[in-house]
Design a protein around this nucleic acid. Sequence first.
RNA 1: CGCGGAGUAGAGCAGCCCGGUAGCUCGUCAGGCUCAUAACCUGAAGGUCUUUGGUUCAAAUCCAAACUCCGCAACCA
Length: 663
Amino acid sequence: MSEKKQKYLITSALPYVNYNLHIGHMIGCLLPSDVYARFCRGMGRDVLFVCGADEHGTTSEVGAMKEGMPVEEYVDKYRSAHEIAVKQFNLSFDLYGRTHTKLHEKLIQDLFTRLDDQGMIEEKVSIQPFSIKDEMFLADRFVIGTCPKCGFEGAYGNECPKCNATLEPGDLINPHSSITTDSPVEMRETKHLYFKLSKMEDQLRDWLKSRTGWPKTAMAIANKWLNEGLRDTPITRDLKWGIPVNKPGFEGKVFYVWFDAPWGYVSISQDANKNWADWWKNNDCHYAQFMGKDNVAFHAVFFPAQELAMNNDWKTVDILKAFNFLNFEGAKISKSTGNGIFLNDAINDAPADAWRYALLASAPETDDSDFTIGRFAEIVNKDLNGILGNFVSRVCKINEKNFGLNVPEFGDFIDLVSFRNDIDLKLNDLKFALDACEFRKSISILRELWSYGNEFFTKTEPWALVKQDKVGEAADVLNICFQLIDLYARISAPFIPETADKMIKIFNTKLDLSWPTKFEWRINGGTEFKIPENLFTRIDEDKVKFMSEKYIKQAPKIVIAKILTANPHPDSDHLQVLSVDAGDGKPLEIVCGAPNARAGLVSVLARVGAKLPAFDMPLVARKVRGVLSNGMMCAEDELGLGNNHDGIIELPDDSVIGSEFKG
RNA sequence: CGCGGAGUAGAGCAGCCCGGUAGCUCGUCAGGCUCAUAACCUGAAGGUCUUUGGUUCAAAUCCAAACUCCGCAACCA
């Protein structure tokens, strides 16, 4: 039988190289794509599974400038950190590549030529902000100036954080660069190439209608873009870092990172497998993409628009699996506050499988959701340790006591019909959920299947059977339990591969981890086994406490507070030392220069670590003329609410002390 | 009135597309078992499904409005 195996193309969004990976990236694309890929391989499908680093773009170039190192060095630093995480968490990419390669450059330049030949490229002159000292054009958001509408001095070239106005960099008064210098910025003409996205609108709409099985979020975002109407979009930038534009007159310019990044899937495939076209130019192939919702527009609109416009049989995505955002302990994961779990740390506190399982069980599939250390411990202790780990342990140990280290023969003493039927039904559900990329549901079914083992064991009471001299029955029960261990290894493998491997290695055989679609007898009576170490370790209260202290670092909220006392500063006539009640019973000492500060006044407090709209960095504790100030009472302008900075905000006396101030 | 997502037991979530006894996990309480890892198994309590209208024999589910939270707003990725 030479039936050709169905091709499955699987891609995970390429992590960008200006940050370390955290649990949000893990659950947002890397991990679910890995589970899906492992499942598909288990099903005997022909999988090509790629990921890699997205290296080009303004952010890398600016990030490198800020850190004072060459761009290559900068992106290498993060890329190698990512590669370590990929290895530590057992992500089974066929290749974890990168976009800064010769192969990729050639691909992009060829694709561009193709698009140009198809009449999809247009040249336009536009006016862009140019930083005079840096001698470079800037992206809108790197220009800072005074907002023409509200007069706020820290407005960005694309929007004003204070009055929420949408701006153009040319609108700003006194525009200057926010990168490494304070250089003045002027508007200069520059020419760019545009992709005629508008011409693709009808074709793209039809294409989108033919997609099924996308999560609601993904389809909603895609439809939104189409409903608003597609505009032609510039695909080149005045940067040094990126793929050089291969068109006369555009020397010194590079392609926009989103023009090249998705094609990284292709160039990395080319690098991973010489038969890459069997997936990428094959309409019978099934293509699944995984990403966070912030990536949807580019994958559901721009990338397929490019592919279709090539008119060259590129494989477009079939199922676009998008995830919402994962919060940590009720707040956003944030690089600046350090709130969140970064992968290079995580692996020191728990094994990869514990993280993999707990994250998948918390996958933000329908809405943003929250991950907490407490929850993590619960999941590991209950599901992995209590249900799966304990099952393997109790089976092996009772068997050793009564039958030694060999799997007993099955003698047909017990009736299995309904038990096996239940298992088969669940296995079918699980396969269905995985094919639909429903991960929480998959985890829940997987756990039910594990539970069946404990249930069966408890109800048949093999320890009692032995005492009653029903040795045949007891042997049957244990034989089945070993079949279950084998079954569990196979169905758990996509989720917790290391543990699955430990489980299958209990037996002295060469069994594979192929995907079972029904209960099977693969462990023969008499097979030797060894009792494994406990598969998982409990996460106890001390560990929870330790991890909480290590990982939870949230920016304090800006709260309503009451001034209890106001005394003159010993060394200054203008300053006062305030004792402030923020509702937590511990008065805070603050040095304040506002003339209207007085005992009894209800105002707004920003604690150390809080981030005010008017400042780039979180607030730090500092000594003001010898007295330590632990925060700041806020004026209107500091909160981004107005221009008044002559005195702190005065709130009604009946405001709730300690509640979050929301303007 | 920019766009979209979400509001369901103490906590975290499913169900909503295709109306028909409101489900899962954790936690709580009670019981069982004692083979096993402070484990496992069984049972119970706990919800006017954000609010208000509408459609319907019937609404968590469809329609409309309000309130709240979150995300996104194409030259950042």
